[in-house]
């Protein structure tokens, strides 16, 4: 299938930003497609790791951030593990997610935000708390509800928030990084 990109003004591509964010140069890619052939999710979505790289090389811009694969990549790192040029595609995906955080597709960013929120508050993840907020945020209470009685009966999830972590230190990490970022922008 031919790979097409929208024509951007010269220098509008995001390949340099991806490199700045991840430290990874995708120009080394040979398009052997081992990444795509090993990718567990590319068969279920419209794009693939090798196509993302080719589009970056061709100078694609913000349009790339609309590719669904960025938001369904499970970070399994099969792509990087099998790449003959040792391109860390898993981290390129992280960089694209960071770049596209303002207009994400799907609910992965919401789930990530809620779970990180519990770490910032308690110093450890509080799955049940994040899950309840996620269900509220996506109005998806009914989904997976059938599993709740069994999970509660088996004690397969903690009901109360975690305690015992060095919460002050964890908060300090979040705040320090926030400050450094503000200074550099």
């Amino acid at each position: 299938m031919p790979i097409k990109i929208k024509r951007e003004a010269a220098g509008q591509g995001i390949i340099d930003q991806v490199k700045a964010l991840s430290g990874i140069d995708v120009n080394a890619c040979l398009q052997c497609k081992k990444c795509t052939n090993g990718c567990p999710v590319s068969g279920f979505t419209s794009s693939s790791p090798s196509e993302i790289i080719k589009k970056l090389q061709l100078g694609a811009g913000e349009e790339l951030l609309d590719s669904e694969i960025i938001w369904v990549c499970s970070s399994c790192a099969t792509c990087f593990s099998r790449c003959p040029m040792e391109i860390n595609m898993a981290e390129v995906m992280d960089a694209l997610r960071a770049r596209g955080a303002a207009k994400p597709q799907g609910n992965m960013p919401l789930m990530n935000k809620l779970l990180l929120g519990t770490i910032k508050t308690f110093g450890r993840t509080y799955d049940l708390g994040a899950m309840v907020l996620y269900k509220a945020g996506t109005a998806s209470y009914a989904k997976d509800l059938d599993k709740l009685p069994m999970i509660l009966k088996k004690g397969k999830i903690a009901l109360l928030p975690p305690h015992g972590a060095d919460k002050k230190m964890v908060k300090r990490i979040f705040n320090n990084l926030e400050k450094t970022r503000k200074k550099s922008t």
């Binding site: 991840s22 970070s75 992280d94 990180l116 770490i119 972590a165 230190m169 990490i173 990084l177 450094t180």
Partner: peptide
């Protein structure tokens, strides 16, 4: 003593420096 979350998948999917710091502590 008083160990905290390693950051797991969500930290690196959002912010690499945060991910490294949460593990490093």
């Amino acid at each position: 003593e008083a160990w905290s979350c390693c950051g797991t998948t969500m930290a690196h999917q959002v912010d690499h420096d945060l991910s490294l710091s949460l593990a490093a502590v």
